[in-house]
Measured scan of single mutants.
Amino acid sequence: EESVKIVRLVKNKEPLGATIRRDEHSGAVVVARIMRGGAADRSGLVHVGDELREVNGIAVLHKRPDEISQILAQSQGSITLKIIPATQE
């Protein structure tokens, strides 16, 4: 059973501070990098390897990473992410 986590981040004009990529094996959209000091890093709630399912209620599974980045870039104020946390080894 996948544990889905709802994360709310507050982002002003600054970038979210995370990059995403598509996992070639599973097809999932995952967090590739977290930039120090960005909104994602400061929240402490988003981690490399987390699978991104939704951004502000928009399912991202069938979107290209550049489309998802665009949605994230255009979002201001509160951003709600639905993520499946990376499995902690």
Rank of each mutant, 00 (worst) to 15 (best):
I6F: 10
E67A: 07
V46F: 08
D41F: 08
A86C: 14
H47Q: 09
M35G: 06
K63M: 13
G27R: 06
V46L: 15
S78W: 10
I79Y: 08
G38V: 00
R64I: 03
M35T: 15
R53L: 15
A86M: 09
I79F: 06
T19C: 10
G57A: 03
K63G: 02
Q76L: 10
L9V: 14
G37Y: 05
M35I: 13
V48S: 06
E51L: 05
K82F: 00
A86Y: 11
S69C: 10
N12A: 09
V55H: 01
I6V: 13
L52D: 00
E89D: 13
V60T: 10
I79M: 11
V10L: 12
R42L: 11
G44M: 03
V46D: 00
K13C: 09
L16G: 01
G37W: 03
I6R: 12
H47Y: 04
E51M: 06
I68S: 02
A59R: 12
H47V: 04
V55G: 01
G77F: 05
R53Y: 06
K13M: 11
P85Q: 07
G38I: 00
P85A: 06
H47G: 07
V55Q: 00
Q76I: 10
S78E: 14
V30P: 00
V10E: 10
I6L: 08
I83R: 03
L45I: 08
N12P: 09
L16F: 15
V10H: 11
G57L: 00
E24D: 09
V7F: 06
L61R: 14
L72M: 12
V55F: 03
L81K: 05
R22P: 04
R22N: 07
P85G: 06
R42E: 06
L9A: 04
G49N: 06
D50R: 00
L72C: 10
K13Y: 10
A32V: 09
V10W: 09
R42M: 08
R33I: 01
L45C: 09
N56A: 03
H47I: 00
Q70I: 06
P85S: 08
R8S: 09
D66F: 11
E51W: 04
S26E: 03
K82I: 01
Q88Y: 10
P85F: 00
R42Q: 10
D41M: 06
E24C: 09
N12S: 12
A28T: 10
I84Y: 07
E54N: 02
I68F: 03
K5A: 04
G17A: 15
S43V: 01
V4S: 04
R64Q: 14
Q76K: 12
S75T: 13
R42K: 13
S75H: 12
V10Y: 13
G57N: 06
A59Q: 13
G38M: 08
A86R: 11
R8L: 08
D50F: 00
R36P: 15
L72H: 02
G17R: 14
G49Y: 01
M35H: 15
D23R: 06
L16S: 02
V55D: 01
R8P: 04
A32T: 14
I20R: 00
T80I: 11
E24P: 14
M35V: 14
K13E: 13
I34K: 04
S26T: 14
K82L: 01
A86F: 11
V48F: 02
M35E: 15
I20L: 15
G38D: 02
L45S: 10
A32R: 09
N12R: 10
L52K: 01
E67F: 05
H25Y: 10
D23G: 04
S78C: 13
K11V: 15
R53D: 03
A32L: 03
D41K: 04
A40G: 01
R42S: 06
A32I: 08
A32H: 14
V55E: 02
I68L: 07
Q70W: 09
V46P: 01
L52C: 01
D23I: 09
Q88I: 11
A40W: 04
L9R: 03
L45K: 11
I68P: 02
S43F: 02
Q88L: 10
D23L: 08
D50N: 01
E54K: 03
R64W: 06
M35R: 13
M35P: 04
G37R: 03
K13D: 14
I68M: 03
R22Y: 13
S78M: 13
T19M: 11
R22G: 04
L9Q: 04
Q76S: 11
D41N: 04
G44E: 05
R8Y: 07
H47L: 02
S26Y: 02
G27I: 00
R42G: 03
V60G: 03
A40R: 00
A32N: 12
G77M: 06
E24Q: 12
R21Y: 08
I84P: 03
I84M: 08
V31T: 01
A28G: 09
R33M: 07
G27L: 02
A59N: 15
V55L: 06
H62E: 14
R8E: 12
S3F: 15
G27F: 01
V31F: 15
A18K: 01
E24A: 12
A40V: 11
H47N: 10
P65G: 07
K82N: 07
V10D: 14
A32G: 09
I20C: 07
R36Q: 13
R53S: 06
K82Y: 00
R42D: 04
R42H: 06
T80V: 10
A39K: 06
T80F: 07
A39V: 14
T80L: 08
G57H: 05
V48Y: 02
K63A: 05
N56R: 00
V7D: 09
V30H: 13
A18W: 15
P85M: 02
L9N: 06
V60A: 06
K11H: 14
V10A: 11
V60Q: 02
P65T: 14
A28H: 08
K82R: 06
L81Q: 03
E54W: 01
Q88A: 12
M35Y: 08
R53T: 11
R64M: 11
R33V: 05
L72R: 02
G44V: 00
A28Y: 03
G38H: 03
V29A: 09
D41W: 12
R8K: 13
D50L: 00
M35K: 15
R53W: 05
S43H: 04
G49R: 02
Q70R: 13
A86P: 06
V30A: 04
R22H: 08
A18V: 14
Q76T: 14
L16M: 09
D41L: 02
L45R: 09
V4M: 15
I68Y: 02
H25Q: 13
E54L: 01
A59W: 01
V48Q: 06
G37K: 05
V48H: 03
H25K: 15
L81T: 04
G37E: 04
R8Q: 11
D41P: 00
P65C: 14
V60L: 13
L16V: 09
R8C: 09
I84E: 05
V10P: 10
E67S: 04
G44T: 03
G37T: 01
V48R: 05
G44S: 05
R36L: 07
L61S: 15
V31P: 02
A40S: 03
E51C: 05
E51H: 05
T87N: 15
T87M: 12
I6Y: 14
S43R: 03
V30R: 13
R36D: 11
Q76M: 11
V60R: 01
D50M: 01
L9F: 10
R53E: 06
L81G: 05
K63V: 03
I58G: 03
V46S: 00
L52E: 00
R42C: 06
G38F: 05
E51D: 01
G49C: 01
V48A: 09
K11W: 11
L52F: 05
A39M: 11
P65W: 07
I34R: 01
E24G: 08
G38A: 05
T80A: 07
H47F: 05
N56D: 09
N56L: 00
V4H: 12
I34Q: 03
T19E: 15
K82D: 02
S69R: 13
L45W: 05
R36C: 07
I6T: 15
V29H: 12
G49A: 02
A28V: 07
D66Q: 11
K11E: 07
R8I: 13
E67Q: 11
L72T: 05
V31Q: 02
R64D: 14
E89R: 11
S75M: 13
L45N: 09
E54H: 02
K82H: 08
D50Y: 00
H25S: 14
H62D: 15
I84L: 11
D23W: 02
A40E: 01
K11I: 15
G38L: 06
R64E: 15
V55C: 03
E24H: 12
L61P: 10
